[in-house]
Design a protein around this nucleic acid. Sequence first.
DNA 1: TATGAATGAGTATTCATTCAT
DNA 2: AATGAATGAATACTCATTCAT
Lengths: 192, 192, 192, 192
Amino acid sequence: MSPRREQIVNKASTIFWKKGYSGASMRDIAKACKCKPSNIYNFFHRKEELLFEFLYTQNLRLLERIRCFDEGHVAKPSEQLREFIHIHIKHVLNYQKTSRSLFDTGLERLSRSNREKVIYLRDEYDQILAGIIQRGVEEQEFSETSPRMAARNIASMITRTIIWYSPKGQMTMDDVADYIFHFSVSGLQRRK
Amino acid sequence: MSPRREQIVNKASTIFWKKGYSGASMRDIAKACKCKPSNIYNFFHRKEELLFEFLYTQNLRLLERIRCFDEGHVAKPSEQLREFIHIHIKHVLNYQKTSRSLFDTGLERLSRSNREKVIYLRDEYDQILAGIIQRGVEEQEFSETSPRMAARNIASMITRTIIWYSPKGQMTMDDVADYIFHFSVSGLQRRK
Amino acid sequence: MSPRREQIVNKASTIFWKKGYSGASMRDIAKACKCKPSNIYNFFHRKEELLFEFLYTQNLRLLERIRCFDEGHVAKPSEQLREFIHIHIKHVLNYQKTSRSLFDTGLERLSRSNREKVIYLRDEYDQILAGIIQRGVEEQEFSETSPRMAARNIASMITRTIIWYSPKGQMTMDDVADYIFHFSVSGLQRRK
Amino acid sequence: MSPRREQIVNKASTIFWKKGYSGASMRDIAKACKCKPSNIYNFFHRKEELLFEFLYTQNLRLLERIRCFDEGHVAKPSEQLREFIHIHIKHVLNYQKTSRSLFDTGLERLSRSNREKVIYLRDEYDQILAGIIQRGVEEQEFSETSPRMAARNIASMITRTIIWYSPKGQMTMDDVADYIFHFSVSGLQRRK
DNA sequence: TATGAATGAGTATTCATTCAT
DNA sequence: AATGAATGAATACTCATTCAT
């Protein structure tokens, strides 16, 4: 992807985040890119393409860092889970205000074929996380549970950090990731 | 609130859910109400009022069911937490496709004063949940932890069920609530 | 005309003055009448009727006070002119902010037949004023001039007072009328 | 100002004249410009901008022709007055059906800051005219009088010509200007 | 690579008006 | 005499998009 394209997608994504897809106008996006709306059409055919490009590359970037946690991975599942959470949390919170739509919204606005491509990536994410948990169960590190349900809940906690996390607060991203990891593994219950 | 007003708010909310606030046009909403857009303005002054009315009453309805979990509540904190989760899950999943914006989006579109009113309710929610956890920690039922962080994560799991839950699937709402409750209390770790 | 009708016309006229005919909405007018727009239709068939009723009665009221200056009037033309100006000035400035449209605008919005009725009154006004001047010329009190032109100019000075006159200023309405009278009769030139 | 902008302002102004500001729709204006309403927004941000641009440039154009009548001007005040009236009359009647709002209406529709700009020009006009008269009084060409009042009345006669003047009538613009000049200087009174 | 002009479809909202109550 | 609900047409204005330059 050309650097200008990338630049535009980045600007667009922060605006999608702030205003939602429909609420973001090409004028808004162009202004952020310091050019006129018509110019954007030299790089993208339609507004939807901006959304797709963003959702897809964003998701892909995350996946590429996560695909290593496949069956052949050597670390203990709990260690894998810890690392997985750290990676995803940093991904979400570093791309600050741009990466929310990723897991939450926007899909409806995509063309069918583009939507499928994104869902495909998302499914892969789910399977990787569920896979880690499943192996944890099989290796008796984790208790008997539904890997898919656990994966959903963990992903929910991670992705929604973006709503409340502030870099100016007391917690670092590592703190947040650690908390979610421990919460996922141990829960609230007191050990005796 | 007049029944017609309520009716319109309900229709509007399902459309907000489907298309987002900006994506939902007054025509869409009017069509769902089987009247013309202009008529809606006999009941509401602006589109934003529809969003606010929905967010506010929805939130209020939930709060009213939850306010009982105050300091004087007799049940054990873990029991309170179980009930809290069941109530919220049912609230979210019963109002089906209408209640998502509640915790996620839409706030930016409200006028400042309306936004504050909603945030006020939301804060109360957070405090009630955090309060339950705090008492659990004090009574040594829960391990030492940050009640606010725990509350955030539990709320994240609950509110995001709306994204993946389908009433046609294998799990009932009670199943979902039970899962989240146990996950919150015990985590994944295997007890010996 | 029923008192309620009259009341509504009065309220309407001040709003027409402030916002112009198109700029004034039935809602504005109704609010001024402390009722709902639909109620106004119990008294008037259409918005235009309000405008007409106002223009017509307002003009008529003025005419009734002026019709005495016909051929049989005994006073000297200059005396008649003085009184004419005083009457019209008071009419304009007393009905404060309501009577401007009278001479300036609004006619285009009337139906043809209503427009003709108003123009008819207006013509009568012009003729009365021109008549006074003509008799002044004939009786050699005024110099040879076009009575119609003089009438136009005098009327212009009178009607436009509404734009700059303020009751809080230093001049009374009589002062204004006196000034315009003397200006009309003597002009600026210095007498030797 | 770009030629297209100027073109649009001109078309708009004739429509404002015919229908008033509120009565003139962007569709009307666009039709007169032989384009679609949306295109006008490529040149002006809001309807009000059209009105302002017209009022301001029109007024400015007049002022530029009138500013010469300052204290240093050599001609006799009466000569200055004659020329002043001729200039303004031609300005008003040449820009035919477009220049009425100039002195009469429309100001209320402007934003505060734009309104102030126009009023500023208008005040300058008033002062120039009053200045001429004042110097006439000082040089004892004119009789003792209030320059401001005289200026108001003369301006009223001039600006309102637009209501009754028709180029098809018997009087030329010079005739009209001459009449108003003589009327202003001599009034109706017969000299002996 | 960039833009100004153009547009058709769409936006929320307001309008005057009607009518049943 | 008064109103709430309803509506079709209009309002100013914005939209994504195109195209010639």
